[in-house]
Nucleic acid binder design. Sequence first.
DNA 1: TGTTTTGCTAACCGGATGGTTACATATAAT
DNA 2: ATTATATGTAACCATCCGGTTAGCAAAACA
Lengths: 106, 106
Amino acid sequence: MSTLRRDVFQAIADPTRREIIGLLANKALTLNGVAENFQVSRPAISKHIKILTQCGLVVIKQQGRERYCQVDFNKLKEVSDWVTQYHSFWSQKLDALGGLLEGNEK
Amino acid sequence: MSTLRRDVFQAIADPTRREIIGLLANKALTLNGVAENFQVSRPAISKHIKILTQCGLVVIKQQGRERYCQVDFNKLKEVSDWVTQYHSFWSQKLDALGGLLEGNEK
DNA sequence: TGTTTTGCTAACCGGATGGTTACATATAAT
DNA sequence: ATTATATGTAACCATCCGGTTAGCAAAACA
């Protein structure tokens, strides 16, 4: 699994990974602790965690043989920044095109 | 290309599609107008636009043989909502685990 | 010491993704 | 009527993705 092209947007694209983030928001969990909450196998969760760590969204702290996963929420700011740049457009009507086409709508 | 599992998070996972959204924020463009701004082929852009329309992020208004693309920014709220639920965690120090492990850190 | 537990990695699989080229269709322009 | 333009679609391809099972290594426990 290469470490290329790993960014936050791609990491949160998967619903399972978003769920994992939700879980870890409450408290740090070991990998098995995370896996208990899902139907899929441990290796599958392990892969998800790896993707989340590769982009910095999750940080792992080793404690003996256990590895506690926690979210670095600051990484989510990258997503927040991207989204909020469009906040001003949100309440805008969807009729900008109408103007653009000078009411020539089909 | 099935219409299944098409959600906003997956749509914005691709950097090209995020760029497209940035482009369309300024003004509605035809499909060729969008494609002019990228190196990839027109069919590739066509596929991206299809994905963006399937999840509702982009709306198309046909004008003769031209198809004007514009962003429905309200769809981005879904992303914003997901992110902002974690706003309270942002300024939090990354030492919650330290407490959890009772200073037993390696 | 031996065994259980935690977690990683490898090999594999089917389906999705992102790209291409080639061709089809419909509207517009000459 | 013919040609040019705008766009869609099909077929194909390499790679990625998310999942599996099997096996390995290290720490913890009996």
